[in-house]
Design a protein around this nucleic acid. Structure first.
Lengths: 168, 168
DNA sequence: TATTGTTATACTCTATAACTATA
DNA sequence: TATAGTTATAGAGTATAACAATA
């Protein structure tokens, strides 16, 4: 394990840099295709993908923001773009009048379906082609654990808002 | 391995999403500290870190751009900012008059040194705390292989420039 | 009083294309 | 003709703070 008073050892540093480099390269490559195939940015694709995966294709704005690791205002902006293109709809939640439910439209689902094959091919070619089954199992296991650990920390949308956390 | 005609299986999809989510959360957390500790963005820190690690603290612009996964003009912009703050210097290369060598200044090294402890603590707390030694070894091994595989693809700065790659 | 979401605004970043200079 | 880098410009994205509405 790691000594909390020391720096990272060589192995840790290497793994950290490799992680960031791999995800960066992967995101860049994938984003290029998403843009060409469906005029979608990475964030927009993530929003749509999460909605498609969600029960009934709907999620609250805040849950979406947390999932995508995004600020609220940023999500409002992106949701506005997707709304304008008819890929999602927004409506007040019946449960909590403050909340807004975001729902994928059929057009949204179709776009995801159209874009997905190329996307998946991209990911396979770059990420999984260099991986054995054991690699995959190991990677998936560690990352799932790490994600859970990170998610235990308060999510981004819980950041202090105007008026809180001031000095004095 | 993966069947090139099929989609990703559940395990692959999970690993892919976990990878992107973990790196995204990590980068976000780390960037917050870098900004607070040294008024550095993620890219700026990466540029400085790479220079500090390089022999004699110097690298060509293009090598830097490839390493950081960045466009040339983007790097010029960032280098301009770092230059203005006295953290790097730029000078024509003696070998190739077209090239520009970027060098970290003492101030740049000091800033990296000042920011590094907090940075490292952040990474340890989020990434390595949830990992055993075996996890680390596995993760590092896979990622190094994947990175090499990805890097086998032409780097970003080699993207077609004005006038190349036109249809016809 | 806290939470959800939107808006206005200002700013940072990024990419494209045009340009200069050297190989 | 190709490569290295800069610049101008224009656009996308992002965050902050202020705001309205509901809990």
């Amino acid at each position: 394990m790691s000594d909390p008073t020391a720096g990272l050892n060589t192995e840790q540093l290497g793994a950290y840099f490799a992680l960031m480099e791999v995800s960066s390269l992967l995101q860049y490559a994938v984003e290029e295709h998403l843009r060409a195939d469906g005029d979608l940015s990475w964030v927009q694709f993530q929003i749509l993908a999460r909605l498609v995966d969600a029960p009934e294709g709907r999620l609250r704005m805040t849950d979406l923001a947390d999932g995508v690791v995004y600020s609220r205002s940023g999500l409002t902006y992106q949701a506005g773009l997707l709304d304008k293109r008819g890929l999602i709809t927004r409506s007040p939640s019946p449960d909590d009048e403050r909340s807004v439910m975001v729902t994928v439209t059929d057009a949204g689902r179709e776009l995801v379906a159209r874009v997905l094959p190329g996307h998946v091919a991209q990911v396979r070619g770059l990420l999984f082609e260099a991986m054995s089954d054991e690699d995959l199992a190991a990677l998936g296991g560690v990352l799932a654990r790490v994600r859970a650990h990170m998610r235990a920390t308060p999510p981004r949308s819980a950041k202090p808002r105007a008026g809180r956390n001031r000095a004095g």
